[in-house]
Amino acid sequence: MTAPLLKVDHLTVGFPSKAGVVGAVTDVSFEIHPGEVLAVVGESGSGKSVTALAVMRLHSKSTHISGSVMFNDTDLLALPEDQMRAIRGRDIAMIFQDPMTALNPVFTVGMQIVEAILLHHHDMTKQKAWERAVELLDMVGVPEPRRRAAQYPHEFSGGMRQRAMIAMAISNDPKLLIADEPTTALDVTVQAQVMEVLHEVKRATGSAIMLITHDLGLVAGSADRVQVMYASRLFETGSIDEIFYESRNPYTRALLDSIPDLEGTKDELHPIPGNPPSLLRPPAGCPFRPRCSMAIELCREQTPALIQIANSHASRCHRADELAVLAAGAPA
């Protein structure tokens, strides 16, 4: 197996507040290999975005971050700011959830792409960069790219803006593209188109993608591996098949149960009852316990560790082994 492109170890992120430190990410370790698509799923507030922003080192100075983020054998967390800046946008690029607010309203779309290009190509002329921006817009499926490049973000529709964001993100052929819920804010019809563009981009550039999403349906068709987060922790990680058909984690199963079935064979949806626990003062034991239908006494006392199940499959649950006998798709 090739060396990992990104290797995150024991990443822990906390936000200090008046009432204490909010533990948004707790001891998270994972890898992304070149050209791979890793999907990160989990309910709102589970720490997906915070993880991504920690990789990009975009948190404010007051944020407590520990662990390591190795990118091609450099520890990003230890890098001086100007070297980190050179990596942002060039080696690792990011697409955000809400295209309506992620583009600067006072500069033209073309200029914003040109800026991204020129930041990492100091010797390129502005005209060439502009040509390249038009090309990129064309590549992500923006019609009449030349005219569109001269327009401002408010003249673009949501889907078009997200395409522009993608064009901007890939303008320097990044090795890793982090897409934080790239389709959540879009209409259903547009969602599929934007995902198609992302696939296209991946085929064309061969970059690895960290795809953050709520939408397990989206994951099935596009990811190589899946990583499930809950209450700041990694709950399960594995290949598509391992997660979708052999999940060893009650939370993953509940999550799967809560989405409309891909084949449309499921008659009912089962939203997960209850809410995730407070990240400020997390209760002892398994954070999923109050909502878990399989909880036992042990779950109250002891936080489960991440248990290796197969080569690429791990689950955080005291009863992971028992779950093997239960057929997937019919969670307890």
Binding site: L58, A86, G89, M94, F96
Partner: peptide, 8 residues
């Protein structure tokens, strides 16, 4: 945040 993510 987008600008920072670009490396500005």
């Amino acid at each position: 945040r987008t600008a920072r993510a670009k490396g500005v």
